[in-house]
Design a protein around this nucleic acid. Structure first.
Lengths: 236, 236
DNA sequence: TAGATTGTTAATCGATTAACAATC
DNA sequence: TAGATTGTTAATCGATTAACAATC
């Protein structure tokens, strides 16, 4: 199933995944427009700011359910609200970080998530040396307390930043505790877990795109890294 | 242009972007097979391990240029080598991190990148308080030295982990210095830069998928966060 | 030989893009 | 009214999936 379903008043509408992935960009552009005092923005204006085609913007915004005004454009404020509702960003969700390593603490300290309706409440780690510390005003708690706190605070989202080897076990533990959505930052591709949404940030896939394009660049120009290495080495 | 070109012996072949993004998963599965002593792996075996269809695996592997043996499968070692070559992971590339904040230092400390042919050499930051420090055995250097070191060490890849406001300026500086590929971890969507490949890790897009699916889940079940909030608050 | 699995060719599916009448 | 822009309907494009003959 490649579609996401969202409730809009009475009827349930589905939004294509590529559209959902573009929605945050629209929010960013529309907020800038709002700051500039614009009440309306046209599809071509939005498209221009993002390097897209206006027809794609119109199709995407139609999926969100907002109607524009021919000759005028789309109402900026209404559009932002509609997108945020589609994404579930209209009311904030609490989240726990599992794995208080470098990445986990980096994410816990990122203030930008508030904009996306994500509120990181605490971090969990199985390392006693880390437990008790506070990072960015958030406590690192022992894994033993995870399940209890998920239940007591009704936390639905867990951000997985444990080492690759621990990913499967941590995911099972999170599911057991009642976590509904896992944001997986580990390089481990988790097997599907019943009743749990898993979204993976796949750095290897992203790097694969970057490095393959870079490799093809080198291949096309004829230059190779080996040639560049002819020159004397310098220390940093 | 949505295709990446790679040189394979004489002819230039193009690999579809969705295929490229799946290649790292194949490498992971194939390495496990290699450790188990398998010389060959069938498309259905690989597909099963990743939750894909065997026909998709066969199509992807065909794109990489390796031929399988009917009734037997694909040669594991040869396949790994061919994928790594397609991705440019066969010879390591040096990279600089721009922005020695939490995310930058987290990435600099991630040992898994070595597997992807990525070697982070040093970090750069404009904050004098950070300059001179060493994180994970890598020095934090002043931005002023960036251009010179890119040239002297022939570094082609920069990993951008500066605050959103600094992204555009840092990207321009990197391009000016001769960087060929930017791995952009900031929430800023950069305008195209001539001669520079930009690959973005778009956390907002990823979170949008997660949260919209979570929101639709809530909508479908009828449960809302407001109802859950009826119960007494507990402190962490 | 029989069974398993590949690789090719065709069908399907879904997303993007184009064209243009409707409308502010 | 004239100009701008929407939203709909159709065309295109590319990726996934299906079917099956070829082959080890």
């Amino acid at each position: 199933m490649l579609r996401s379903y969202a409730m809009t008043e009475d009827r349930q509408i589905s939004i294509a995944l590529p559209t959902i992935r573009r929605l945050p960009m629209y929010v960013a552009v529309l907020e800038k427009a709002l700051q500039d005092g614009q009440t309306h923005a046209s599809s071509s204006q939005i498209a221009g700011a993002l390097g897209l085609e206006s027809i794609q913007v119109r199709k995407d915004l139609a999926a969100v359910g907002v109607v524009g005004q021919p000759g005028v454009g789309f109402p900026v404020g209404e559009l932002i609200a509609a997108i945020e509702k589609s994404l579930g960003w209209d009311n904030a969700s609490d989240a726990f970080v599992i794995g208080a390593g470098h990445l986990g603490t980096a994410l816990a300290g990122y203030r930008g998530f508030a904009r996306y309706g994500l509120n990181i409440v605490a971090l969990f780690d199985s390392d006693p040396a880390k437990v008790g510390q506070t990072v960015h005003g958030k406590k690192i708690l022992p894994m033993e307390k995870f399940a209890d706190l998920v239940a007591r605070l009704h936390v639905r989202i867990a951000i997985l930043t444990v080492p690759a080897e621990a990913a499967t076990e941590s995911a099972a533990l999170a599911a057991e505790a009642g976590i509904k959505a896992l944001w997986n930052f580990t390089p481990t591709k988790l097997a599907p877990i019943d009743g749990v949404i898993v979204e993976r940030v796949d750095l290897a896939a992203s790097l694969a795109v970057l490095s393959s394009r870079l490799a093809s660049l080198v291949g096309a120009s004829g230059a190779t890294r080996a040639q560049a290495a002819d020159e004397p080495e310098s220390e940093v």
